[in-house]
Amino acid sequence: MIESLVPAASSYAADIDALFTLIFVFVGFWLILCEGLFFWLIWRFRKKEGARGQYITGELKSETRWITYPHLLVLVCDLFIVVGAVKVWYDVKQYLPPAEETVRIVSQQWAWTFVHAGPDGLLGTTDDITKVNELHVQVDRTYHYKLESTDVLHSFSVPVFRLKQDAVPGRVITGWFRPTQAGEWDIQCAEICGIGHGLMGARIYIETPAQHAAWLMQESPISIAAVTRTRPAEE
């Protein structure tokens, strides 16, 4: 249902969508039932000629069951929601699968800086590739992210991943994602961070292995140097 509005492009997006749908169905059911009952009661006991209003204390069992039965049923629904939410929370935020690659994400007013591992696949080495407002990742590859903020609170939000993580100044927050669908989508800041907050957007490029390798070759200074060095020999 949600996927028809926003594509799901991460390994946990479907689980989050399922939880949202579950909450939507439960809440929607009770909303419609209660509002329907409410309006029916208003209509059923509307002002009538000769009928006097009554003061009901609500102490009789026949009256309290109008509260207790729905209450118990709502608690049963809550149980399903809580179990689903804890499972999703654990999978997305608590569990950290082994990383195949790590990307450093630096947020600041009002831009995202992404430091990608270069061809060596390691972050913090000389072949790292730094891009502003461009995150390049490979499909079906597990990434850890190290999220930082240099100034105020920001929130790293990738709607197609169903991922949202606050960035807090002074902290490096680790999380993960695994892209499942190639394409180009939005990244946004989801925490009011100043007058330029609404303009703090970036793009995520989820690439196939071949596309990603080509991008690495194009961007890596070491690769360019290597190509330059080998050119005379080739000639």
Partner: peptide, 18 residues
Amino acid sequence: GTHPDDVGGLRMHPMSRL
């Protein structure tokens, strides 16, 4: 305004697009 270390520039880049 698009260099990763240009703090002021990174602010002006989106603001100019207003």
